[in-house]
Each structure stands twice: as C-alpha cells, then as structure tokens.
Design a protein around this nucleic acid. Sequence first.
DNA 1: ATTATAACCGACCGGTTGGTTTGTTGTAAA
DNA 2: TTTACAACAAACCAACCGGTCGGTTATAAT
Lengths: 195, 195
Amino acid sequence: MREAEQTRQLILDVTSEEIHKNGFQATSLSTILTQCNISKGALYHHFANKQELGYAVFEEIYTPMFLSMWEPAVTQEDPIQGLCDFFESLAKDMSCEEVICGCPVNNLSQEMACVDEGFRLRILAMQQKLNTLISENLRRVSEQLRSDLDYSQVSYFIVSAFHGSSSLSKSTQNKALFQTVMAELCVYIKSLQKN
Amino acid sequence: MREAEQTRQLILDVTSEEIHKNGFQATSLSTILTQCNISKGALYHHFANKQELGYAVFEEIYTPMFLSMWEPAVTQEDPIQGLCDFFESLAKDMSCEEVICGCPVNNLSQEMACVDEGFRLRILAMQQKLNTLISENLRRVSEQLRSDLDYSQVSYFIVSAFHGSSSLSKSTQNKALFQTVMAELCVYIKSLQKN
DNA sequence: ATTATAACCGACCGGTTGGTTTGTTGTAAA
DNA sequence: TTTACAACAAACCAACCGGTCGGTTATAAT
C-alpha cells in the first residue's frame, strides 16, 4: 500500500517527461510502461485511461511547476525588477534540452486545447490564475507605474511574449534567440515605470 | 496530364486544412483520401510519403501564405503604422475558427521542429526571411525611430509576441484575449518611435 | 489461518496507422 | 496500331495503438 503511491508518482514523472519531449498524442503507453518497468495492468490500476493520466500530469505536475516558477518573481517587493531578473536568469540558465523541448505548459496547451475540452478548461483556469497573480502584484506598486496601464492587458502581453519567445527558440532551436527576445521583453517591462 | 496537377493541388489544399485543424502527426492519410475522394495509390503517386507531403504543404502553402501576410504591412511607407493596422485588422476580422485553430505556421513549428529535422530547417529559413523583411523595413525609417534599437531583436520580439498571443487565444479559445494582447503590442510598436 | 482487496501481470483484442504492391485505364508519342 | 508511361484504383501488409480481462501475488484486517 505504501509502494502504490510511489508507482503512481513514478508514472506521473515519466509521463510528464515523455509528454514534454513528444507531446501528449505522440506519447504511447508502451514507452511509459517500458521506462517505468511496469505492466499495462499496473498503469490501468492507477489511471482510468490515457486521457485521465494526461489530466493528472497537467494538474499535479505542470500547473504547480508553472505557477511556482512565476510566483516568487512577482511577489517580491519590486515585481518589475523581479520579472526582469526572472527572465534574465531563465535565459541564462536554460539548458539546451529545455530550449529544444520548450515550455511544457505551452506545448500541451498548443497541442490539446483545441482538441480536448478537459485540457482546455484546465489550461484556461491556470492562465487566469497566472494573470491575476501578475496583474495584482503590478497593481500593488501602481504608484511607481504609468497611469495609462490596463494591468490585465499588460499581464497577458507579458505572458504572451514569454510563450512566443519560448516557441520561437524551440522551433528554431536557438538559445541566443530566446535571450534576445527576453532582453527586449525586459525593455518593455521597464518601460511600464513612470518617466 | 492536365488533371494530374489539379489532383496534386487538391491533396495539398486538403492536407493543409487538415494539418491546421489536427496537427501533422494526428492527421491520418485516410481522412485526406476520403476528403479528396481519391485512392491511396493516387496520393503515393504524387508524394513519396507522409513526411514529403508535409514538407510540400509547408513550402507551397504555409510559407507563401505567411510571408505574403506580413509583407504588405511592413513595405508600405510607414511600417510602424502598417504593422499596427495589420494587427488591428487581424484581431478584428479573425474568424472564430482561426482563433481556435491558431496560426498554421506557429502550430506546425511547435509540433514538428523538435521532432523532425526537415521541418526544423524549413521553419528556420522562413523565420529568418521574415526577420530580415521586418528589420530592414524598420531600418528604412530609422530616422523616425529611437536610436537605441536593435532592429533584429525588435523584429523577433514582435513576431514572438504575435505568436504568443495567437497561442494564448488558441489555448483559451478567447478572441477578446487576442485583441487585448494585439492592442498592447501596438502600444509597444508605437513606443519605438522618437519622443 | 482465513479472507478481502489492493496492486500488479501479461496475453489478447479490434481498430488504425503509414506504406507496398499489383493491376487497370487513359493518353500521347512513334 | 502499337508502345510506353503517367495517373490512378484497391487489395493487402506488418506494426502499433489504446484498452480489456482473467489471473496472480502481496498485504492487512478479521
């Protein structure tokens, strides 16, 4: 009964990596089974089907990972500086594998949102959570920012630019390109401040 | 001999739509055959395999469509205004289907760049073409723009933001969100001008 | 010790995939 | 009219897919 949870977690971990590399639809159960060194019966004991396994990966792996990545950047005293530092360190420390595979959340969103309603709703919920996280922390320091800002709009733009550059660097497999766009994103973010 | 080219074109058109809707890997040959009302022999007479068919769609459909979409926006007298008009009309006239399916080029790039080298190289070439198209036309009016600009960097940022917002609106299936981010992108673009 | 059930195994299933092969038809040059 | 080849048609193939199911083992309560 104790190892059961370990098996479940192993399946989630392996599956999340495999989805990150190949996408959800192109990830076959057989490769998951091989990597986990378990049988098909074991997998179907823990998850009803492939779809439910995908949902579990998104909810238990991707969403927490993604939100906890952004959270410290905006909750610190100066979210403007926090975001810039975040993007810079991201561009600097990103491994070549991460450049090639892209952002897991972005990948899965692109692939599954228009195909599977369950994924779409989960993605939507996560995006809204992220938007309020960013926009509310910007509003927190609104006295330092320009008066003409629509915080929700700005937040969505920042996330869009991030995902877009992650896409671009992934599709061209060019890390320098990611750094370039991140640098310009920082220029934009700092332009939100007064003066 | 005359209808042969028509058949080939029909296959390309149907396949490009199907890839746009479902992605390349999830598009099966059988659905293409059904929609074209042809046999498998006919398809394999015109294309060596599914991969080559995909390459042909990218080169003969997607790339010209994508470049001809951007080109008039930046080649007019004022590329800054041209880009803003372009994005605004795009956000306004975009059909719900286009919102849901996203940008075909962006979709295919995301899906195939890290999986298939042939796709990656074609995508890379197209992105570089687009970048020079935008950056050279910005440089053309450099006397109207800020002096601290890196034109290539700015161009990549614009394209990234565009793809990112197209991604976001696709994954959330929210047209208003696309308009929102496009509006903020125009704000950014206009900030490139002097004063 | 018995019993119940969670945890897991692996053979099997129908269906689909991309791809091959053999055969037919239309057309155009010789 | 014969010949040659482009342009298809359709049956067929092995491989793989997600999913099912009957059976086995381990564990924990009774």
